[in-house]
Amino acid sequence: MAFGRFNSPEGARAFALVLPPFVYAILLLAVPLSAIVLFSFWTQDFTSVDTTFTFANYQKIIDEPIYGTLLARSLKVSLLVTAITVILAYPVAYFVSFYVDPSRKSLWLFLITIPFWTSYLIRVFLWKVILGYNGVINSGLLGLGIISEPLQSINYNVGAVVVTLAHAYAPFAILPIFVALEKIDRSLLEASQDLGENRIMTFIRVTLPLSVPGVVAAVLIVFIPTIGDYVTPELLGGSSGKLIANMIQTQFLQLNNAPLGAALALVAMLCVATISLLFVFLNRRWLRGRS
């Protein structure tokens, strides 16, 4: 009866197979997300949760400027990190795809990913070692006599956060762009040159447009996690570099205000979803316009 809806017995088998992971996702994703939606309309009453329905948390987020500031800064930092990471990564992916001998491509990709086999926390902390007050750069420059006292402009600010995150997400940007570039049929480039375009115009008119899916994937892969990261801002951001994720973490684990934390998390998620969908939508439209 339930199987009557499927065109074939194979369809029914496919349904039975997809069921376990789907039920798991319902139980551990849909249900918890619904729970925080519910929590965001409740309030914390010292040690217990007051379950009267209210917009108080959202009102608080709008009224108190700290939340808006953190959210705006988070979006700004994430977008900046995304742009820098992707722009820095593109030429590397291009080089490996177009100029490296096919038998050595995997070696280059391997070289690129090796640094990321160390712990993420350690990598972030190492940037603190490099950029810190007594860090590698400052002590190096002091030792060489170029500066007389440690530079403070390179540590504990948004810039330090951006550099660290751009480093942390480098391979996630390189790999999707590389894959998109690899998929491009090389005869298309020859066709373009055959039709009179030089190498640069071929890149602009053929290679770049065809690699856009990879660039969009890279943008999403970098943008989404950076908004939820509280490690880097905590270690390198100083007081001016704290982001929205730090506030969510503080609300949940230190101030024990789960409802306000839930509301903040939902607002942050909404921002991420809106911007991500915008990217996906632009990509779709743009691709449709081409085909």
Binding site: L33, G228, I248, A265, M269, A273, S276
Partner: peptide
Amino acid sequence: VLPEIIIAVA
């Protein structure tokens, strides 16, 4: 496509 902190708090 969800930031990990969202999954964590949920």
